[in-house]
């Protein structure tokens, strides 16, 4: 069972096409699931950087 979301799968497939990587279709679900974890890390990083830029509230 995998838990990759459609958005992660779509972005990863596009990235593989752009990079000319012929990734096996039967292993794409696992790759997309791992990539979804990377996406959550990227979101966390962006949120933290934005949070640090916010002025402190009195």
């Amino acid at each position: 069972m995998t838990f990759a979301d459609d958005r992660s799968r779509m972005i990863l497939v596009a990235a593989f096409e752009r990079e000319a990587i012929d990734y096996p279709a039967d292993r794409l679900d696992e790759a997309a699931e791992d990539y979804s974890h990377l996406r959550s890390f990227m979101s966390l990083i962006r949120e933290e950087l934005l949070r640090q830029q916010e002025p402190a509230l009195d």
Partner: peptide, 28 residues
């Protein structure tokens, strides 16, 4: 790009997914 099938499954997956990281995300 040229020798993907020569990697083991785990390494192929873990290296390849880096293709989905953009420059801005890396810089962040």
């Amino acid at each position: 790009r040229s020798r993907l099938h020569e990697y083991g499954n785990i390494a192929a997956r873990r290296f390849a997914i880096g293709a989905g990281i953009g420059a801005a995300d890396y810089i962040d």
